[in-house]
């Protein structure tokens, strides 16, 4: 340890620059160029389309149940395996359906992100 008075001047130690190459397409996103905006726009559109798709399936299955029972009240008398239809659908079938939708979503969303990462990591030639 040197004396405090005679301490040498501080030297800033830096690593190599983190950008692999300035020509990578990530630079377009960082600089918010029109091209970068298009890359981001395509990712957002893909992910939003996927989300809306999953939610539409949800709305057209579970979401239509109240309307179906409202229009056809006789459905309440239908029995499946000794239990009323509404109980089988809402009490049991709904949960695996939700899980399946979630699983499909996670797989596709991760694939969209991989595709995006590959696209923007390519170096322009």
């Amino acid at each position: 340890m040197s004396e405090p008075g005679a301490a040498p001047e501080r030297v800033r130690v830096t690593g190599p620059p983190r950008r692999r190459t300035p020509a990578a397409r990530t630079a377009d996103i960082d600089d918010e160029t029109r091209l970068g905006g298009m890359y981001m726009g395509s990712l957002l559109r893909e992910q939003l389309r996927l989300a809306v798709g999953v939610l539409s399936v949800l709305a057209l299955t579970l979401g239509l149940l109240p309307l179906a029972f409202h229009l056809f009240p006789r459905l309440a008398d239908v029995e499946v395996l000794g239990a009323p239809l509404a109980w089988v659908l809402l009490g049991v079938v709904a949960y695996p359906t939700l899980l399946l939708l979630g699983w499909v979503y996670v797989r596709r969303a991760e694939r969209n992100e991989r595709d995006f990462a590959e696209l923007v990591s390519e170096v322009e030639r």
Partner: peptide, 16 residues
């Protein structure tokens, strides 16, 4: 039964 179904489906909406 819509209460428990909705509370679970809420997580699907949150997920996507």
């Amino acid at each position: 039964l819509w209460y428990p179904v909705g509370w679970t489906a809420g997580y699907l909406v949150l997920l996507v």
